[in-house]
């Protein structure tokens, strides 16, 4: 057991956890925007896949990661507008439109991969970027300041998202249309427009989550690369109670336990591997039960807004 808790292992676990958490943070923050405005988007995984493929393909063809980021954002906008159109304008049952979007994204990314690329190839994506001076600090520098750019961006996204949602007019509008769209509407807020914005912005982040996977963390694309990661990201939004900090806690908890179980396996701790793999899922539920969430969901979550009916 002392080996498990040695400094090297602890450092290893935290470094791993930070990497693993990165796509979850992007996708979950995006989903938080969408849900705060009242729209559940279950299609995150599909958006991630399309974003992951687009970014990967652009790097493969041009070698330029910035074009890749741009491509991922554009494709995120397209998927977001599609989701908004179906869920906001057409007031569709959101749980189901999300699953449709997931299928579309899964199929589209695999189809494009098949016809445009054909076989698995690795790419040179984002390289590790040592932050000057900070990276030289023992232990801490090793853990936090030797990552690739998308990892830093993910963590900077937390305060940025908090600031945007809590301190800006647009953030206020997003929260208002998620709490009481009728009231917001009577105050002159364009509910439809705000929801379009929140859903599409969320989709861009989901797409970037996919891109962070394919161009920074694994540096390749394969059919169904995300393997359901997007659904976990949606779950983490509930864990975090729609708050960026809560999402950070959830993503880090899930990823740390995941990194921990990998280390347990590497160190040959005697538990069945299946039980080890279960741990992050199990502990996420247990943790939420233990703290008993007092946070109320956006009141109009999952409810399409129809001006005529109110």
């Amino acid at each position: 057991m002392e080996q498990v808790l040695s400094q090297a292992v602890l450092v290893g676990i935290i470094t791993s956890a930070i990497r693993l958490a990165t796509p979850y943070i992007f996708a979950s923050i995006g989903e938080a925007f969408s849900q705060t405005s009242g729209v559940v988007n279950l299609g995150v995984d599909g958006i991630m896949l399309v974003g992951a493929f687009m970014a990967y393909y652009v790097v493969l063809k041009t070698g330029n990661v910035w074009f890749a980021v741009l491509a991922a954002m554009l494709v995120g906008i397209a998927m977001g507008l599609l989701m908004s159109f179906i869920s906001v304008s057409m007031r569709a049952e959101q749980g189901i439109s999300g699953i449709g979007l997931y299928m579309l994204g899964l199929g589209l990314s695999s189809l494009l991969f098949k016809v445009l690329v054909g076989s698995v190839q690795t790419i040179e994506g984002f390289k590790p970027l040592d932050i000057p001076f900070l990276a030289d600090i023992p232990v801490i520098g090793e853990i936090f300041f030797k990552n690739s750019l998308p990892v830093y961006v993910a963590f900077l996204l937390i305060p940025a998202a908090w600031w945007f949602l809590e301190k800006t007019t647009w953030g206020l509008k997003i929260r208002a249309v998620g709490q009481n769209p009728a009231a917001a509407d009577s105050l002159g807020v364009d509910v439809i427009k705000v929801r379009y914005f929140a859903v599409t912005f969320g989709a861009v982040l989901a797409s970037l989550a996919g891109a962070s996977l394919s161009t920074a963390l694994v540096n390749l694309f394969q059919e169904n690369l995300t393997a359901g990661l997007g659904f976990i990201a949606v779950a983490l939004v509930y864990f975090g109670g729609w708050k960026p900090v809560g999402i950070l806690v959830g993503a880090l908890l899930f990823s740390t336990v995941n990194a921990f179980q990998l280390w347990m396996q590497v160190l040959g701790v005697d538990i069945p591997s299946d039980v080890a793999v279960m741990l992050p899922y199990l502990l996420t539920i247990v943790a939420l039960v233990a703290v008993t969430s007092r946070i109320r969901p956006p009141a109009a979550l999952n409810k399409p807004f129809d001006r005529g009916e109110n």
């Binding site: 449709g100 979007l101 299928m103 579309l104 899964l106 199929g107 695999s110 189809l111 098949k114």
Partner: peptide, 11 residues
């Protein structure tokens, strides 16, 4: 994969 695309669109 085309099947998923079609199904997604239908849904």
């Amino acid at each position: 994969a085309l099947i998923d695309v079609l199904l997604g669109l239908v849904v």
